Amino acid sequence: MRIPLLSLLMLVSTGCQPKSKSDKPEVAQKGQEDTLMETSLTADQLKGYETAYFASGCFWCVEAIFESVKGVKEVYSGYSGGTEKNPTYKEVSYGKTTHAEAVEVYYDPKIVSFAQLVQVFFGSHDPTSLNRQGPDRGAQYRSIAFYKDEAQKKIITDYIAQLEAENIYGRPIVTEVKKFDKFYRAEEYHQDYEKRNPNNTYIQNVSVPRLNRFKENFKSYLKKESH
């Protein structure tokens, strides 16, 4: 299957800056967090949607990108791709596990297809950068496209072959194509982090610019409120 290529703007600087050991993530102000929790879908509501899993750097940035895509109902930040059970943010972000920061995407396949989500994934980070996204370094920030069955695997590998055949990036793609096993949801303060912390300097200087670059190239994929 040939998937139409979108106009991709790939910059090394699209990754999130590393969180230093002294950083303490800001939490939502009272009232803002309550509103976010009220608008979240329940587990029963989410049962009606398909799921897809991706890793492409800091999950704060990746979550915000997928949440802007029409047909996507919910996105959670978490950890996947490794073998350790119940990893924590401190363990993963310090490179003490084999997991990567990842996202779980709930989507309506009648509105957005898995193939289109794969396009979003490749169009919103640098898949030629090994164990790094921008200034974020380490295997915990590696690029992974997860698949749940052979049909999804073919969609991913065919798209990679197409990107490389047309030399979109000018360098070999190093994205892992990995069978999905387990997703561990991150701590609550990481969920909707960008929305909860709009005044955070990290969000303003790194996450928002990355999101805006994505929006500029994928205008037809955006929810109306994301324009």
Score class of each variant (00 low, 15 high):
125 H>S: 04
136 D>H: 03
2 R>N: 08
178 K>Q: 14
102 A>S: 13
29 Q>D: 12
168 I>E: 10
110 K>M: 04
210 R>Y: 08
21 K>G: 07
201 T>E: 15
156 I>S: 05
25 P>V: 02
32 Q>P: 00
188 E>A: 14
20 S>V: 01
77 S>E: 10
116 Q>E: 15
65 I>Y: 03
144 I>N: 06
52 A>S: 13
58 C>D: 10
13 S>D: 11
85 K>R: 13
15 G>S: 00
173 I>S: 08
46 L>P: 03
1 M>V: 04
116 Q>L: 05
205 N>P: 02
214 F>G: 04
184 Y>T: 02
130 L>C: 07
57 G>S: 04
194 E>W: 07
15 G>M: 09
225 E>T: 06
131 N>K: 05
1 M>K: 01
141 Y>K: 07
193 Y>M: 00
13 S>C: 11
185 R>Y: 04
94 Y>R: 08
156 I>H: 09
106 Y>W: 14
227 H>M: 14
113 S>L: 13
222 L>T: 11
13 S>Y: 01
78 G>T: 02
145 A>V: 01
71 G>C: 11
68 S>Y: 05
203 I>K: 07
97 T>H: 01
169 Y>K: 11
213 R>K: 07
64 A>P: 05
218 F>N: 05
31 G>F: 11
213 R>A: 15
98 T>Y: 02
19 K>L: 05
105 V>Q: 11
113 S>T: 12
140 Q>E: 13
21 K>S: 05
100 A>P: 01
82 G>S: 06
131 N>F: 04
60 W>Y: 07
212 N>F: 12
218 F>K: 02
61 C>Q: 12
10 M>L: 15
56 S>E: 09
146 F>R: 10
11 L>I: 14
190 H>R: 06
134 G>Y: 02
202 Y>A: 05
11 L>N: 11
164 E>L: 07
158 D>P: 03
49 Y>K: 06
13 S>F: 10
10 M>C: 15
